[in-house]
């Protein structure tokens, strides 16, 4: 085999524009920027995410408000405030750009990105940044609906910001699951089924009825559902004040889900990038 020489730059005009490594953050912003640009172009992704929770919010209140507030010894219970975090969790859980990522894999655009000198991790994290922004934005209309229905923040404007961030972080933590499936399978139908994960998370918990009022078996399951703690944390911020023990448990629950889902997504990313 003859020796391969590194082709010398002197053979080419000096003013030719050449590639250079672009840096992690630059790549991250480039990928996130594309994700954000595509959001308004695909309203079908986020419109249902506003209407479905708004529907549940109103219907649940209509069905259960009088019943739950009439329970003896429960006179200061406010079911509307109780339902708002539920509506927000319904709005943000499962929102991600994973379907778009599958499209990229199928069209070969993902390969085009892999052919660039870009580091591999921003290809996923950039999408997740876009998701985080969208998810935070999605909580706003639900909160406005809550205001219209008379739900206020016990913790004021700071509480409002914290509440939005918490919903955003939960939404972000959940995205790892659809991304893992998208990267593992490259199959749109498989990604669509990741929606099924939403049901045990969203219903085997205190989403419609307070924890103390649940049937025994459901209570047992709900105890292991991270959403129980996240909903609790959001509810205290909304109705009671800065109760850090409860808030801390909620944040920890988000952290645990994030670590699990993100590990799955990163492993799937490595698998796809290595093309074994």
């Amino acid at each position: 085999m003859t020796a391969t020489t590194d082709l010398s730059d002197s053979a080419r005009p000096a003013d030719v524009i050449r590639a250079r490594p672009s840096g992690f953050l630059s790549d991250l912003f480039t990928i996130a920027g594309r994700g954000l640009r595509s959001i308004p172009r695909e309203p079908e992704v986020f419109i249902p995410a506003i209407f479905i929770p708004a529907f549940f919010f109103i219907v649940n209140i209509g069905a259960l408000q009088d019943l739950t507030e009439a329970i003896p010894g429960n006179s200061d219970f406010d079911y509307r405030a109780f339902q708002m975090p539920t509506a927000i969790i319904f709005a943000v859980t499962g929102i991600s750009r994973a379907p778009g990522l599958v499209t990229d894999i199928q069209t070969g655009y993902f390969d085009r990105l892999l052919l660039t000198p870009t580091r591999r991790v921003p290809l996923l994290l950039g999408l997740q940044i876009a998701d985080f922004v969208l998810v935070c934005a999605l909580t706003i209309p639900v909160i406005i609906l809550g205001f219209i229905l008379g739900v206020g923040f016990e913790t004021g404007i700071l509480g409002f910001v914290f509440f939005v961030l918490m919903a955003g972080l939960w939404g972000l933590a959940f995205t790892g699951f659809p991304y893992a499936i998208a990267l593992k399978t490259g199959n749109p139908a498989a990604v669509a089924t990741s929606f099924i994960l939403f049901f045990p998370f969203a219903f085997l918990t205190s989403s419609t009825v307070p924890f103390e009022r649940m049937t025994g078996w459901l209570q047992t399951i709900a105890r292991f559902n991270p959403l129980t703690y996240i909903l609790d944390a959001m509810r205290v911020v909304l109705s009671d004040g800065w109760e850090w023990a409860t808030i801390g448990k909620g944040l920890l629950a988000i952290g645990i889900v994030f670590v699990i889902s993100q590990s799955l997504a990163m492993a799937a990313l490595r698998g796809r990038v290595n093309q074994e």
Binding site: R20, S38, T107, R112, T116
Partner: peptide, 25 residues
């Protein structure tokens, strides 16, 4: 690559610009 590998939801300019940024231009 064999099949044009593009993102249909971007404009031509957006694709080229993104491509340039990823190559550090």
């Amino acid at each position: 690559l064999q099949d044009a590998s593009l993102d249909k939801k971007q404009s031509g300019r957006e694709i080229l610009r993104m491509q340039g940024r990823l190559y550090g231009l």
